[in-house]
Structure formats: structure tokens, C-alpha cells
């Protein structure tokens, strides 16, 4: 795991620590967290050369060559795929500078409003999967048969969308009524 967002390190560290504790997984044995580097495009291109170029050590300061799972892993060629999760434009960098150049299987998890931007890449096969927003997370949990934070967030998502839909209907009823009243007044 690595992060290309300045808010990522603490967030990822918190999540992987709690998930690892819950699942009985060990740091630098079952998972590796490389940490954060700025300039997403440069970092991704450098990772394509060797992970050790942008990340000589992991997030906790251990040299990559001293971490057993990383010893024979140098770049994307040794990875089965990449899953990029983010709410910003980092997904674009993964497609343009990562997948396009190094041709690795890529899947994205993005916010609901961003999802429509990535359908062209899904259709062209540049990404093999897309998790759109909380709904995508909830659907993925359904597929796995393990309900979690995504499914817990759905009621709030539904409530917000119902409010917006009601507002849209009310707004148009008011607009049509206003127009009719104006027309009748003429």
C-alpha cells in the first residue's frame, strides 16, 4: 500500500492497523505500507522503475530490502494488479502514467460524483473494475457477503438522495404553478 494524498498516511495507518488487528495480520509479513510521497505522476512513474526510488523505506522507516514480501518485488511487473482508492484526481494519474505506460491491471474506487468520468476507461478495458462511491462499496460488500461500513452508510446516502429528489419535484410543481398563475393573470 502507498498513498499519494497528503491526508493519506494517518488515514491508511489507522485503517490498516485496525483491520490487521481484527484479522490477525502482521505488518511487513501480510501487508506493507510504503507511506506518502508528493507529486503523484512522478511517484507513479518512479514506482514503475523501482518502488525503492520513491520509497527507499516503508512508512515506519524499515528499508524495503529488509521487508520479506518486498525482497523480490521491484516494480509493477511483479504485481498482480493495482487498486487505487481516492476522492481526488489521483485516479487520473494512475490511468495516464501508470496503466497506460506499464500496462498493469487497474481497478478504481472513487466517489459517486466522479464515477461517470471513469466509465470510458471501464469500457475500453483500461480499468477492470470500478467501485462508485458508497453504493459501490455496499455492492462490493454484498458480493463478498460481509456487510461493513459501506452498507452502514447506505441509509444516509438514500436519505440524502430522497431529499434531493423531493426538492426537484417540489421545485418543478412550484415552477409550473407559478407559470400557470402568471398565464391566468394576463
Amino acid at each position: 500500500m502507498s498513498t499519494l494524498s497528503q491526508f493519506g498516511p494517518a488515514m491508511v495507518d489507522d485503517i490498516i492497523t485496525s483491520v490487521a488487528q481484527a484479522k490477525g495480520k502482521r505488518k511487513n509479513v501480510d501487508y506493507v505500507f510504503l507511506g506518502y510521497k508528493p507529486y503523484p505522476a512522478i511517484t507513479i512513474l518512479a514506482m514503475g522503475t523501482d518502488f525503492r526510488v520513491p520509497f527507499p523505506t516503508d512508512y515506519y522507516g524499515t528499508k524495503l530490502d529488509e521487508i520479506p514480501p518486498m525482497r523480490d518485488v521491484h516494480n509493477f511487473a511483479q504485481m498482480k494488479g493495482v487498486v487505487a482508492l481516492g476522492a481526488g484526481n489521483v485516479a487520473d494519474f494512475w490511468i495516464q502514467y501508470g496503466q497506460a505506460k506499464y500496462n498493469f491491471p487497474l481497478a478504481l474506487g472513487v466517489t459517486g460524483v466522479m464515477a461517470s468520468d471513469y466509465y470510458p476507461y471501464l469500457q475500453s478495458g483500461q480499468i477492470f473494475g470500478l467501485l462508485p462511491g458508497v453504493k459501490g462499496a455496499a455492492e462490493y460488500e454484498q458480493l463478498l457477503g460481509k456487510l461493513g461500513a459501506g452498507s452502514e452508510g447506505m441509509p444516509y446516502q438514500v436519505a440524502a438522495h430522497v431529499v434531493i429528489l423531493i426538492f426537484m419535484v417540489l421545485s418543478n410543481i412550484g415552477y409550473v404553478a407559478q407559470r400557470r398563475a402568471r398565464a391566468a393573470g394576463r
Binding site: 440524502a160 431529499v163 434531493i164 426538492f167 426537484m168 417540489l170 421545485s171 418543478n172 415552477y175 409550473v176
Partner: peptide
């Protein structure tokens, strides 16, 4: 944002 979007939906989505 949800409240802003709801407010925007009320004002913007009209069949003009």
C-alpha cells in the same frame, strides 16, 4: 455538501 446540493437541486432543476 448534501444540503448545498439539495438547495441547488431546488433552484436549478426547473423545466425552463
Amino acid at each position: 455538501l448534501a444540503f448545498y446540493i439539495a438547495s441547488a437541486a431546488y433552484r436549478a432543476f426547473r423545466v425552463r
